[in-house]
């Protein structure tokens, strides 16, 4: 690892409550450009809360701590501003928006980001060509273009759609919230291929996951175990394999 790597995300002593209940309890996390971090942990440990707070979901209250993205205070930014700045959340449960065309949403998203950077809107023809290229990676057929956002999609299709959106938006920091859950092995490989496509020295990725099986396909640089709202242990890929073997209890026991 070179010391010159840019720090993309810096989370310090983050404390978050939901409806008065404390979920994150002094969480620290540093993600540098080029890195893939996996965040694992038992149910209710705060994994999804972390993902949602980073994206700016209004249902979470930050009671203490700080989050910076490229050195700037991320918590001060509205959710849409975070997205335009290059933070992407892949949803655990992507919602359906009936009647709103997939391509229409994608184009609006791309243009919103371009506008924020002072660029002109994308050419519709070029855009469609680009989306089609990315759809090939995600093995999605043309009928997807005209369908409503996640409307009538299977669980696997919804997850693939999240990764497609990520590929189109090319974020600097992608946070994927249990993108692997509910996928069969073929779909998992497709999703992993999508995530790997975007791996580069300039970008980073935070994978929130229950299982190590995704990490066979997207090999992480760092693995963290989240227990009761803070990171109880960090390590390399071997930690994920150990968790797979021994379960979470031993980490939880050590952290207690």
């Amino acid at each position: 690892m070179s010391t010159a790597k840019e720090i993309l995300l810096q989370v310090q002593d983050l404390q978050v409550s939901v409806e008065g209940r404390k979920i994150l309890n002094g969480l620290n996390l540093t993600v540098a450009a080029g890195e893939v971090h996996a965040i694992m942990g038992p149910n209710g440990s705060g994994k999804s809360t972390l993902a949602n707070v980073l994206a700016g979901h209004p249902g979470y209250e930050v009671t203490a701590g700080s989050v910076t993205f490229r050195g700037e205070n991320l918590l001060e930014l509205a959710p849409e501003a975070r997205a335009r700045a290059g933070v992407f959340l892949g949803f655990q449960y992507p919602v359906e928006i009936p009647g709103v065309n997939n391509v229409y949403l994608l184009k609006a998203a791309v243009n919103a980001a371009r506008k924020a950077r002072g660029l002109e809107e994308v050419d519709a023809f070029d855009f469609l060509g680009m989306v089609r290229e990315k759809m090939k990676i995600m093995r999605m057929d043309d009928s997807f273009l005209s369908r409503g956002v996640n409307e009538g999609f299977s669980g696997g299709e919804k997850k693939r759609n999240e990764i497609l959106q990520m590929l189109v938006l090319e974020p600097a920091l992608a946070i994927l919230d249990e993108t692997d859950s509910g996928l069969d092995i073929d779909a998992l490989k497709i999703v992993a291929a999508g995530v790997n496509t975007l791996r580069s020295p300039e970008r980073a990725c935070v994978l929130v996951t229950h299982y190590q099986r995704l990490l066979d396909h997207v090999v992480p640089d760092v693995v963290h175990v989240l227990v009761r709202g803070r990171i109880a242990r960090s390590g390399d890929k071997a930690l994920a394999l150990e968790l797979e073997r021994r379960g979470y209890d031993w980490v939880a026991g050590e952290a207690a």
Partner: peptide
């Protein structure tokens, strides 16, 4: 929120 999280 889904739309906001896409920058819209």
């Amino acid at each position: 929120f889904y739309c906001l999280a896409r920058g819209i």
